[in-house]
Amino acid sequence: MPATNSSTSPAAGTVRFATLGPSGTNHELITRRYLASQGIDDFEIKLILSFKDAITMLLEDAVDYVMQCAVHPETPQTLGENFRSVFAIDCFISDSQELAVLSRRDVQRPESIGVLLPANEKYTDLSRWKQVVSYSSLPLINEALLVGEIDSGLVYRAYADKHPEVLRVDEVIGSPDDVWIVYGRKRAFKEKLIGFGDGAFLDDVRVRLTERAAARSRAAVHID
């Protein structure tokens, strides 16, 4: 599920990211926000449903970087299982879309709720529902809510505005300030502490694009 800012297939100058989908997630929003903050206009964002798939794409050179929220349930696995081949090269803090507990208008006393667990389990008192169902992303919770698979969902507040005939707002949670991690294949840490704005990410981008351009040049010469 590519979300691209380029009208053609990825060129030597295109920065390729993988992050959590489907379309409309905070991960996609923050990835776009991050790229804008770095002054990168030529990019491609590939949306995945599992960070295991994203890391595979990174290791196979299908993408250059992966964006992941630090509180996502797969983050310990992403860092722990791949620490010799995948490295955190940048991190930053950002708010995102406002969260809320939404319920179906045709359900007076909701008994089930969809939640991104364990990341969002403390945002509200889940003991109010008889059944708590775990999902891998908020758009998937919203889809389940709209078709009646669950009565309530801890999702983006904006969904109620998009579907006012179906959904009501039961509780406004707000937007937490989360830490976000950018992963690459080359280690950025070199003895001294690295902070946001130190340029580690852009340094890596320059190296990656230079290497890709050189590889394509060598391939063209070989074909000729």
Rank of each mutant, 00 (worst) to 15 (best):
K162P: 09
L117T: 06
G153P: 00
V166C: 04
Y183I: 07
S175Y: 00
Y123H: 11
Y183T: 09
S112I: 06
G114L: 00
Q108V: 15
D125H: 05
E143K: 15
I173D: 08
G114W: 05
E191W: 09
V115Y: 00
S136V: 13
E165W: 03
D178T: 10
S136A: 12
V132N: 06
I181H: 03
I173Y: 04
Y183W: 11
R105L: 13
D106R: 03
V107C: 02
A188D: 08
L102V: 05
I194T: 11
V133G: 07
R104S: 05
D178W: 15
R128Y: 12
W180A: 01
K122R: 11
S127L: 08
R185I: 09
R109A: 14
L126K: 00
V101Y: 04
W180P: 00
R128F: 13
L102T: 05
L167G: 01
L138V: 15
S134H: 14
L167D: 00
E143T: 13
I113F: 04
I194Q: 06
L140R: 10
S134K: 15
S134G: 14
N120D: 11
V115H: 02
I194D: 08
Q108Y: 14
E149C: 12
L146M: 12
L146C: 05
P110H: 07
V133I: 07
E111Y: 06
S127A: 12
R105Q: 11
L102P: 01
L117A: 11
G114F: 07
E121V: 10
G174K: 01
